[in-house]
Design a binder for these strands. Sequence first.
DNA 1: CTGTTAGCGCGTTCAC
DNA 2: GTGAACGCGCTAACAG
Lengths: 336, 336
Amino acid sequence: MPMARESSRAGIADVARLAGVSLSTVSRAMNGNPTVDPALAQRVQAAAAELGYTANPVARSLVLGRTQTVAVVIPDLENPTFQAILRGLSRAATADGYHVLVADSREDLDEEHALARTTRLRTDGVILCAPRMAEQDLAQLLPSLSPAVVINRGPQGTAPTVGADYGAGMRDIVDHLTSLGHRRLVYLAGATRSVTHRARQQAIAAAISRTAGLEVEELTAGVDIDSGTAAADRVLASGATAVIAYNDLVAMGLLSAVTARGIDVPGALSITGFDDIPFAAYTSPPLTTDAVPAVEIGAAAWAAMHAQLTGVAPRSTHTMTPTLVVRGSTAPPSAT
Amino acid sequence: MPMARESSRAGIADVARLAGVSLSTVSRAMNGNPTVDPALAQRVQAAAAELGYTANPVARSLVLGRTQTVAVVIPDLENPTFQAILRGLSRAATADGYHVLVADSREDLDEEHALARTTRLRTDGVILCAPRMAEQDLAQLLPSLSPAVVINRGPQGTAPTVGADYGAGMRDIVDHLTSLGHRRLVYLAGATRSVTHRARQQAIAAAISRTAGLEVEELTAGVDIDSGTAAADRVLASGATAVIAYNDLVAMGLLSAVTARGIDVPGALSITGFDDIPFAAYTSPPLTTDAVPAVEIGAAAWAAMHAQLTGVAPRSTHTMTPTLVVRGSTAPPSAT
DNA sequence: CTGTTAGCGCGTTCAC
DNA sequence: GTGAACGCGCTAACAG
């Protein structure tokens, strides 16, 4: 006994029946195949419209071998920089008719690995934002992800890379501080196992060997506001006249904590951030920082993915140069 | 002439061959079907492990009729509140083994509609965050989305709703301001077609009829920092002693602009925000605002979706109460 | 130009 | 307890 027709979506067979044609003709008409008689195509389109028919994307994905979806693996959805990358990526992908699957690895290295692999199975490629993953793990993971795009890491053999030049940014920051007259600095390190941390370290080392009398003490903090707050006492005890925070969040936490202790910024202490998150301009004083074009990085990452998806060779590495943004949190050291 | 075996992923047939069993047995063993001989199951697992086999999720989706993925439609990925909702949702969904597709409608009403429908086709349900969509459009859209969850809107007939009580929050804010002695307020309205705007308006109206001598002028602004900045002159011209900004972003823009004009906040003007975004505590002065538990809303939205997905009846409406957070941007009016 | 046939990779009835 | 056959909904070869 036939079941009553379910009220579920119309399938290609329903359209074929209504239009009085075969399944293939419906398929062809719906996909704009030019070998279909215009009159028939019209009839099919009309029938499809009447039934509200749209081809089932899952079935198409199975037969076509592509899902029109890419995965983005991100270490922390709470970080404004990753949010901006996601935003730029999402909008660019949408413009090209692709969907975006987000996966927040919550800074968990194992999770990162697993998420990348599992999401890859239901997508056409993955954009991997994994700053702390060991280079070796990454190299081993990437082939199974292909096509992939790597964000904010050095050149990879198997996947294009998009990112900012953190070394150049750090150089600008140090130069800015030294040209103001600072000689005793603190670098508040964040993710010490990250690639961008090492780029910063190298830039600092280069600046030291270039600038007479420059001393930079490295203190370990973290990557968020709280870690900046927590570092305040150590920073003040260091005797430095300026501090280079790992990023804007750390800088904000530090700024807030030292201000609460009655320290004048930038009068008694200069502070710099990194990234130029949207709120960096609204602290008090507004933060001097280095602007990383995160939205553009996201868009470029999509471009690199889209190129691979369409069989075009992407740029193997796309590096954007951040820009120093001098605001109110830096000034010459007080003449003690 | 047979093609050389492609280096693509192992399929269920490869596992069956290696284990010396049929396709069905592999399928059953991989899905933990208890009717499989333990010894065989072992062999299959071993073969699968050796080949690195994982069932193709797309094929499973087609046959099972579920994708283990949900879509989240959001008006603006740049807004910290939506980011927090997404974060809470994403983490909760991941914990239950689901994936999340994000769609940024960029405040475009047509796009919102289209995105919801198309993403629904490749997912098992959609969480819709569409504060400005007309009630009628929504009612018409929802059935085709089922199962769906609606965020920050009044009760819907066909889908559970999760959100915050913006009216209660606004009441707290107005009461806070009046108890400080303010009588001439400005409400800087944002998305005037949004549901939460109307809830705020009603709360304000109620406060006016309850509080002797209270006047509230409504000015139209927007929902972002720039619109707060742009409203500064109008706010100052109004003669109000306190302003209720639509959200924290507007409040921050306004705060920044009036401070730049030499106005003392809260001495000469009190300002309140709404949402309590992560940076509200770091403005100068820190923002008095009403904390909307956005991450929890995201988690609750997932819970409502998960319930529907597992055949459990979800709470038809889940309303969270925001909390007033008094910080430094409000004070008694100056005794002019 | 159109219809018929054969899969895409898997889960799941049905017989054995 | 296990295998063979069918079908999820669609597209792409192949005939006609």
